[in-house]
Amino acid sequence: MRTLLIAGGLLAAASASACLNDFEVRHAEQEFRAAYADAPPDPAPEAEARLPYFLGTAAGAVLLVLALVAAGRQPS
């Protein structure tokens, strides 16, 4: 029985083992890989544009300074 069990498992494994090297292997792998080459991945997402935020910050800073100037010039 034990021999039979061993035999069954090994028979299945016989087809599982293969690292054969011949002239065809590399070609076959390249062909296989090429069959799944598709369009390149979607373009990388553009980095968030920062300029509007820098302009917004600059505008805020100018308005803030102008407000302080206006407060300083206001007659008592």
């Binding site: 299945a12 494994a13 016989a14 087809s15 599982a16 083992s17 293969a18 690292c19 054969l20 792998e29």
Partner: peptide, 8 residues
Amino acid sequence: LGGGANPH
């Protein structure tokens, strides 16, 4: 590239 389909 080896022995084909196997259950394992």
